[in-house]
Amino acid sequence: MLNFLEEWSFFGGSILLIFIGLYGVLSRKNMIKILISLGLMDTGVNLLLVALGYVEAANAPIINSVNPSNAAAFVDPIPQALVLTSIVIGTAVLALGLALVMKIYDKYSTLNISEIRGLKW
């Protein structure tokens, strides 16, 4: 049971996180909440990527006095590098989204997304 939980808390859990975020983006009315949901999706993706590179009982991929040689068991460094990139871009997206929300609040004086009907042609 514990094994199952461990396995699914990383793969299934991160996928669940992604879809919770997706549901939040689609259903919440408050724009700040939508941005939080976007952040959740981001976290879910990052977790999933890192989990894909995990090796049981292995170390962080750094050669130091604890693991003096590359013969030791390391986890996969590439997903970690990717996630590093992903985190930075997620931050940039969130910051830009918040700036937009601020601007929209200035203009419409509301955070409710369904009261903002400007996006039609």
């Binding site: 396995e7 090796v55 390391f74």
Partner: peptide, 9 residues
């Protein structure tokens, strides 16, 4: 797709 924790480095 490897099982969790069994990534084939």
């Amino acid at each position: 797709l490897n099982e969790f924790g069994k990534a084939d480095i």
